[in-house]
Amino acid sequence: MPLADRRILLVHAHPDDESINNGLTMAKYVQEGAHVTLVTCTLGEMGEVLVPELEHLAAARDDMLGQHRVGELADAMKALGVTDHRFLGGEGRFRDSGMKWDENGHATAADEIHDNAFWHADLLEAASLLVEIIREVRPQVLVTYDQFGNYGHPDHVQAHRVAHYAADLAAARSFRPELGDAWDVAKVYWVAMSASRFRDGLREIRESGDTTSFEGMDPDNLPPFAIEDEYLDAMVVGPEHVPAKIAAMKAHKTQITEDGAFFAGGIDVASMVWGSEFYRLVKGTRGPVGESGFEEDLFAGL
């Protein structure tokens, strides 16, 4: 398939999710001439503000974080070269639901949730908004979260549900033809992290004497977003795109601090962790694998 004919759609819950999970993949495909579309479902209004001078933006104070994060996301997209970015239903259609940690250390729905929270969104309404985008863009590949939202955040779980329902509805010729001609997405992937690489990285960080980065994470008891390699299907590699990914992550200044765990001091986390991104294929036929044992192109086999 000619690179210029390749189209990939990524569905994420909040600004910054895309850069952390798929920044390298997005930069790689943009550079190769593929069409990359990002759909973000909320403005991230309930995020924790990590910059002291901007703490007044938080939901509990001025409640202006969402609009600020729109600008951060725009800067991140510039770093990655992505020019097609949309908010599901437009800016502010769905609000960040917030979250809390449960007794198992997983994210879950907060006790109090805004009436307009994405977690409360009507599934058919939200999916229909995405159907229109799918039928317009006509992507061969769609990327989103797994059924657990990778770590339990309600907005990640909802994004998973909306993405899958929309992909099914978009292929149904009789479903709301006014939204465009039917389109069947050929391959659907869930973002994932390689358990073996994460385990090795954590051990190296701990052996360096750093006990605070990724605090509470044990190499022998990894969180649910770390998937054992036998269940991974694809690995996108592009060390030359790591600087773009790092720049995109740093653009989300209220959410990711340059001296935080993502850039652990004294350890080259960029090359160790960010030089490859992993995926689980959940719809479509797995294409040819490379020497790595994984698909090395999400369009493989198309």
Score class of each variant (00 low, 15 high):
S128A: 03
S128Q: 04
L129P: 01
L130M: 11
I133R: 07
I134Q: 03
R135A: 04
E136F: 00
V137C: 05
V137W: 06
V137D: 11
P139W: 05
P139S: 13
Q140R: 08
V141R: 12
V141E: 06
V141L: 10
V141H: 12
V143Q: 09
T144D: 03
T144A: 13
T144M: 08
T144Q: 00
Q147C: 10
Q147P: 02
F148K: 10
G149D: 02
N150C: 12
N150A: 13
Y151A: 13
Y151M: 01
G152A: 11
H153D: 06
H156W: 06
V157R: 06
V157M: 11
A159G: 05
H160E: 02
H160K: 00
H160L: 03
H160Y: 15
H160M: 04
R161I: 05
R161P: 00
R161G: 05
V162E: 00
A163L: 08
H164E: 05
H164S: 09
A166F: 01
A166S: 06
L169G: 01
A172K: 09
A172L: 11
R173Y: 00
S174K: 03
S174L: 13
S174C: 01
P177N: 04
L179M: 12
L179N: 03
L179D: 05
L179T: 01
D181G: 04
W183V: 04
W183N: 05
W183E: 02
W183G: 06
D184N: 06
D184Y: 01
V185K: 12
V185M: 11
A186D: 07
V188C: 08
V188I: 15
W190P: 01
W190V: 09
W190A: 10
W190M: 12
V191G: 07
V191I: 15
M193C: 14
S194H: 12
S196M: 10
R197L: 13
R197N: 13
F198P: 00
R199N: 09
R199A: 09
D200K: 15
D200I: 00
D200V: 07
G201M: 15
G201K: 13
G201V: 08
L202C: 12
R203M: 14
E207M: 13
E207T: 09
S208E: 12
S208W: 10
D210H: 12
T212V: 15
